[in-house]
Simulated scan of single mutants.
Amino acid sequence: MSTPYILVLYYSRNGSTSEMARQIARGIEQGGMEARLRTVPAISTECEAVAPAIPVEGALYASLDDLKNCSGLALGSPTRFGNMAAPLKYFLDGTSNLWLTGALVGKPAGVFTSTASLHGGQETTLLSMLLPLMHHGMLVTGLPYSESALLQTTAGGTPYGPSHHAGADGKRGLDEHEIALCRALGQRLASIALKLENTRG
Rank of each mutant, 00 (worst) to 15 (best):
G72R: 14
T39E: 08
N69G: 14
N69Q: 15
E46T: 03
G102A: 06
G27W: 03
M33W: 01
R36T: 07
A25D: 07
N97H: 15
S44F: 01
L98W: 08
N83S: 13
E29P: 00
S44K: 00
D66R: 11
E57D: 14
V56W: 01
M84L: 13
L88M: 12
F81G: 07
S44A: 03
L60N: 09
S44W: 02
G94M: 11
C47L: 15
A62S: 15
A21E: 02
Y90N: 13
A53E: 15
T79K: 01
A53F: 12
S63Y: 11
G82Y: 10
S63W: 12
A74M: 03
D65A: 15
E29T: 07
D93A: 08
L60V: 06
M33F: 07
R38E: 01
E57Q: 13
G27I: 06
G58A: 04
L64P: 02
K89W: 02
L64M: 15
R80T: 06
A86V: 02
G94C: 11
A85S: 12
G72I: 12
G76E: 10
T95E: 06
K68R: 15
L67P: 09
G102D: 08
E48Q: 09
I24H: 03
G72S: 13
Q30N: 06
L100P: 02
A51G: 08
F91C: 10
P87F: 05
P55S: 02
D93Y: 02
F91W: 03
G102Q: 06
D93S: 13
I24Q: 06
P52M: 10
I28F: 01
R22Q: 05
M84P: 01
I54G: 01
Y90S: 07
A42K: 09
G102W: 01
T39C: 06
T39F: 04
A86S: 13
T39Q: 13
D65S: 15
G27K: 06
G32C: 00
A59T: 09
F91R: 07
A59V: 06
K89P: 08
Q23H: 11
N69C: 10
D65H: 15
K89M: 12
S77A: 04
P87D: 13
S96D: 14
V50P: 12
G102Y: 01
I28S: 06
L100T: 06
M84N: 02
S44H: 05
L67A: 09
N69E: 15
P41D: 02
L98M: 08
A49N: 14
L67Y: 03
A53K: 15
L75P: 07
Y90H: 14
R38T: 10
